[in-house]
Write a protein that binds this DNA or RNA. Structure first.
Length: 697
DNA sequence: TAATGTAGAGTTTTT
DNA sequence: CTCTACATTA
């Protein structure tokens, strides 16, 4: 077994070696890591550079707490941001700690933890059991309706409103507080929308994603005795990727920890690339003030990359201001120089990368899956895709339309939500006419007016509505029929096997036929129906107990809400080890590693991106570049195009300033030799004129 | 209801 | 340029 193996993130590389390590939990770590694992006297912050084994520290600390400190697993909670990270963590813990000993351990995402709290304490928050969770699209649809209601104009602002409301919720501001802090007329208007949005959600017995964090925080604030109960339940809290927490998440952490010491957070300020969606890397610094006894431990030994790659990363990131100084070092070899490919056009850039991958694979006996191509924006993948296809190179693109974005899945989920929560009007509106029930917009409009006047849900409204209303006889009849069928199905759900009832539901509505009518090809229709059955299968799996995976029996309610949070158990993991070149955005690459990495488009306005230059937010772009560089284990290749087509027109580009920030002696430039100086001059001029422009204005 | 036309935009993404 | 969303038309 190679010594390096244990640090690799890929469970595939090392799964077999873990089983025997139980007793060795701490001893195989380096001194810094050991210190991080063993320190339990107070709150600690582990500043873990890229590739320094941070997941190992968390998982081994969990094992240490359980086996060495005798803390029951049920009193330990580890929190991550993504389901993927939490799945991986669970897997790795299970290899360190025996099943009975790890029983009751909580490893969850922030949102899942919030959901657990909210489910148990729903009455303190004014919610009923079985509440729905609105995803971003549901929330936007509701906001669009609200905006159109009083504005009688378009709901164009829905996206803006959603972002603003999300900001407010992330800061734990209630509508009234948002209103009193509103600085201009527009914010006031949005704050009023926020208020009504909240009222509607409550009427629907629904929460949105942000509520899953904010509502527990408010609930704990208002009910100290409930907080004490949860503090008693979680005695040690571990937080992964701490630099990605937003204000409300930090608040939740602070509440749960209270005045006690059981807190371990792991993070890297240099890998904070999500500030644009509310993450506050300042939370790392704040921690020192909030917990004066905070112990700070730095992990600087990198087990992933060659020295030259790390030197490039360190040199680049040194251009950012730092509160915590940190320099990665490595015992792995020096490695090859970092190559910089100068290309004539974006077309030749893709061409070059494709041929290069093919050439290197054949020459060095590598696999396609040893290569990854990273870029700033998704559109950059398109050209590359064509080239890869032309050379018959298999590839995998991250971030295609997700399973849950598919229409058939949204429909199916809406049916499920409606079964659990009749007040979920958004779900009702989505499927009331899917498949066709000849219930038109006019009928629904009238029903909506009736319901709104009385402040009740649409289904309640239609049950209460008499013939005297403005709804046509015909429309009312159709609606009634639908609601009665729904009522019957809900009833049966309580008496029979839920999965059987759900299967029956889809055959009742003849969903298969509907899909065939509304798909382009029979093949596609079949595929879509299979997706629905896959969903039902997942539900079934999630509901049935599995002692292997420490999973207890759960209700349909529970399973559906976890599904909305995309917390599907195992999904398409087998496909991952296919031998394919990986194409991903720099953002999506965080947390991953590859032997050979290409980063495309090192040009001003692209990387750093134009919007970031305008907002003067170069530092986050630099961190993005840093994340990209530190993904590489053995070789790193950067490229840029001298000319790029943008919106149909050709533009001369300027090489990225980040190229200047790398150690010159470690770079090997290739291609278009004489354009070298020209490009540099161009960049010099541009920077100069930008400077002059600033002064001039 | 489906099909065609046209205006407008055009980072990063998870839950 | 290319894709999306919405509106107008048959």
């Amino acid at each position: 077994m190679s010594r390096r193996c244990q640090w690799y993130n890929h469970p595939l590389d090392c799964s077999s070696s873990f089983a025997t390590l139980q007793v060795l939990t701490v001893s195989q770590l380096n001194p810094r890591q050991q210190e991080a694992v063993r320190y339990i006297e107070g709150p600690s912050l582990v500043l873990a550079g890229a590739g320094s084994g941070k997941t190992s520290v968390i998982t081994r600390k969990i094992a240490y707490l359980i086996e060495h400190c005798g803390i029951p697993a049920r009193q330990i909670a580890a929190v991550t941001f993504t389901n993927k990270a939490s799945r991986e963590m669970k897997e790795r813990v299970s290899k360190l700690v025996s099943k009975p000993a790890s029983r009751g351990l909580t490893v969850a995402t922030f949102h899942n933890l919030g959901l657990t709290i909210l489910k148990e304490e729903h009455d303190h928050a004014g919610y009923h059991p079985g509440f729905s969770i609105f995803d971003a699209e549901d929330a936007r649809a509701l906001l669009r309706d609200l905006l159109m209601q009083d504005n009688q104009e378009t709901g164009d602002e829905a996206g803006d409103a959603q972002m603003k409301i999300s900001d407010w919720k992330n800061a734990c501001l209630l509508p009234s507080e948002a209103l009193s802090r509103a600085s201009d007329e527009r914010e006031q208007r949005l704050a009023l929308i926020y208020k009504r949005y909240g009222e509607y959600l409550r009427a629907y017995n629904a929460v949105d994603f942000d509520d899953l964090i904010m509502l527990p925080v408010i609930l704990f604030r208002d009910n100290p005795e409930v907080l004490i109960k949860w503090q008693g339940r979680i005695r040690h809290l571990l937080v992964d990727e701490y630099q990605d927490t937003n204000l409300s998440q930090y608040e939740l952490v602070r509440q749960l920890v209270g005045h006690r010491h059981g807190l371990t957070v792991v993070g890297d300020d240099d890998q904070s690339i999500y500030a644009w969606r509310g993450a506050r890397p300042e939370n790392l610094v704040q921690l020192k003030d909030d917990f004066p006894s905070l112990k700070i431990i730095k992990l600087e030994q990198n087990y992933r990359s060659t020295r030259l790659i790390l030197r490039a990363a360190n040199t680049l990131i040194a251009n950012n201001p730092h509160v915590f100084e940190k320099a990665l070092w490595s015992e792995l070899g020096t490695g090859e120089k970092i190559r910089v490919l100068r290309c004539r056009s974006e077309d030749s850039e893709s061409e070059r990368v494709a041929t290069e991958i093919l050439d290197r694979k054949l020459r060095s006996g590598l696999k396609f899956s040893d290569f990854a191509v990273l870029y700033r924006g998704n559109h950059q993948a398109r050209l590359l895709e064509m080239k890869l296809q032309a050379y018959n190179i298999p590839y995998r693109i991250s971030g295609g339309t997700s399973f849950f974005a598919k229409n058939e899945i949204k429909d199916a989920m809406a049916y499920l939500r409606l079964l659990i929560n009749t007040n979920d009007d958004t779900a009702f509106l989505r499927i009331v006419n899917v498949p066709r029930r000849e219930i038109g917009p006019r009928t629904l409009e009238q029903l909506g007016i009736y319901a709104r006047a009385r402040g009740i849900g649409l289904i309640s409204a239609l049950q209460a509505m008499g013939a005297a209303s403005h709804v046509s006889e015909r429309g009312l009849d159709k609606l009634r029929r639908f609601s009665e069928w729904l009522e019957r199905t809900t009833q049966r759900l309580r008496e029979e096997d839920p999965i059987a009832v759900i299967k029956q539901l889809f055959s009742d509505i003849e969903y298969d036929e509907w899909l065939h009518q509304n798909s382009n090809t029979p093949k596609q229709a079949q595929k879509r129906m299979e997706n629905v059955w896959y969903l039902v299968d997942s539900l079934q799996k999630m509901m049935s107990p599995d002692p292997e995976k420490d999973r207890e029996e759960s209700t349909l309610e529970d399973a559906v809400s976890r599904l909305v949070l995309r917390d599907m158990l195992e999904r398409q993991e087998e496909e991952d080890d296919d031998d394919k070149v990986q194409l991903l955005t720099l953002h999506a690459s965080k947390g991953l590693e590859f032997p050979h990495v290409f980063i495309l488009g090192l040009e001003e306005e692209l990387l750093p991106h134009r919007a970031s230059i305008e907002e003067q937010n170069i530092e986050e772009e630099r961190r993005l570049m840093y994340v990209g560089i530190t993904r590489a284990r053995e070789t790193l290749t950067l490229s840029f195009a001298a000319q790029r087509k943008q919106y149909g027109e050709k533009y001369e580009t300027i090489p990225s300033r980040f190229l200047d920030e790398l150690p010159e002696e470690d770079l090997a430039w290739e291609g278009m030799g004489d354009l070298d100086k020209e490009a540099n001059q161009k960049r010099g001029k541009a920077t100069l004129s930008a400077l002059l422009g600033d002064l001039g204005d």
